[in-house]
Design a protein around this nucleic acid. Sequence first.
DNA 1: GTGGTCTAGACCACG
DNA 2: GTGGTCTAGACCACA
Lengths: 139, 139, 139, 139
Amino acid sequence: MYYCIDTHIEAHTEMFKINPNAALPIYQQIVDQVRRQTASGQLQPGDPLPSVRNLAAEHTINSMTISKAYSQLEGEGLLERQRGKGMVIANSSQLANKKDRLKELEASTQQLALAARQLDLNTQDVVNAVTQQMERTDD
Amino acid sequence: MYYCIDTHIEAHTEMFKINPNAALPIYQQIVDQVRRQTASGQLQPGDPLPSVRNLAAEHTINSMTISKAYSQLEGEGLLERQRGKGMVIANSSQLANKKDRLKELEASTQQLALAARQLDLNTQDVVNAVTQQMERTDD
Amino acid sequence: MYYCIDTHIEAHTEMFKINPNAALPIYQQIVDQVRRQTASGQLQPGDPLPSVRNLAAEHTINSMTISKAYSQLEGEGLLERQRGKGMVIANSSQLANKKDRLKELEASTQQLALAARQLDLNTQDVVNAVTQQMERTDD
Amino acid sequence: MYYCIDTHIEAHTEMFKINPNAALPIYQQIVDQVRRQTASGQLQPGDPLPSVRNLAAEHTINSMTISKAYSQLEGEGLLERQRGKGMVIANSSQLANKKDRLKELEASTQQLALAARQLDLNTQDVVNAVTQQMERTDD
DNA sequence: GTGGTCTAGACCACG
DNA sequence: GTGGTCTAGACCACA
């Protein structure tokens, strides 16, 4: 037996990427991201979520917006409210297998393919663009 | 007596893909698509656009929604109104070079890459998904 | 005991003059008036505009009509939307010099001169009429 | 007795000024102008109007637009259709006294004054602009 | 409270 | 036939 001393310093790469100018509403961006990170296991049962207040400050967003996202996720059973602690990932949350996770990408790939076709860009052009983008976000 | 063989083939693959449930407003989807098809030369100066009523009927959308899109494009100078006839691509509309067209894709690729990372999918997974999607829309 | 003398004077002379029967569409009348008041400095960067609902109620006009005007002005960069707060004159809005402002009058003066000629009224007649009208609106 | 050889060459200063891009519909521009010229005596009972076809060609306007204007004026009793000859000013048409003609200007002067106030231009500015415009149209 | 989007349906201007 | 304007009313996103 030993003590696991957590020397982990919260480098705090932000948990969520928020783009207030995107077409997608902010609250929806949050919902989507929690769903995905839970499906992939990056967020696991019991993991705490940032407090509404912190998240609001961090992204200079209205707290109500975040509250709304959390409430919706709670309604879906994906988050649980722990009195005095805040929101954590629910025990009932489940990992998704790869096929299901790929299915989650579909809306994005369809949209991308449509745009590419209309811009008269071919598969290779798009693959290059996507590859670059993936590498750029390779943390 | 003779056989009247109708060789008329309904070429009319719909000009626009509309998703009424998407986060992006319908009128904006149309605006985007006209912009892209014009940038790539798939729509050229003088080309007529579907009439407001037809497009509305085809997608069971309200005419005002279409009208709003057309008006915005007219305001941008991309469309011209021919009184009593309809809308056509403006003469002043310009082709965009490949670099600019790739830049137009950026929002879509960023969104895709973010989703993929959160779903714990790697570059190869995404490239495969995108390639399949592109091939599926390969007319 | 004291007298509470309400010195609050309803300054609220309506910001816009709307004529629902005019040839010019209502939304265009609003656009024009905001443009002019901004060009002359009567509306300055940061100044708030009446809320869509208030303006609609005040003139018994449909909100969408107002919204259409505001959206167009936002598209032109003359207005900025402050989410949840309302519309304000954009910081980038600029004063116009006198020559430019006189140019803005041209359409109106041309129309007036044409009407006067056809009514066989001479310059002096028109100048008198205009002077009277200006004095009548002299606040 | 002598022969009156008509050496008059149709200098043809156009009878109507048409602006297809104006806010005022074309047919309304025609109606207004006939009304005014009749009120002032510039058009008198029996005077012929340009044929629909000629007027249409001259201004590259659709004949139906002109036809509509003429029909409306005929409905008002201001024009009469003379079989085989075309439209002429009706006998019942009446001159208007100066006061009434000045009243006809009111809409235009009001609009001008409103624009001027909002552009922060004073009476003198407007009078100058109007005077110039009147002199410019002084045929 | 703010503005935005959409609908169904009416009427207008123009060809 | 074309597009444009307007209405009344519903629902959404955000503060």
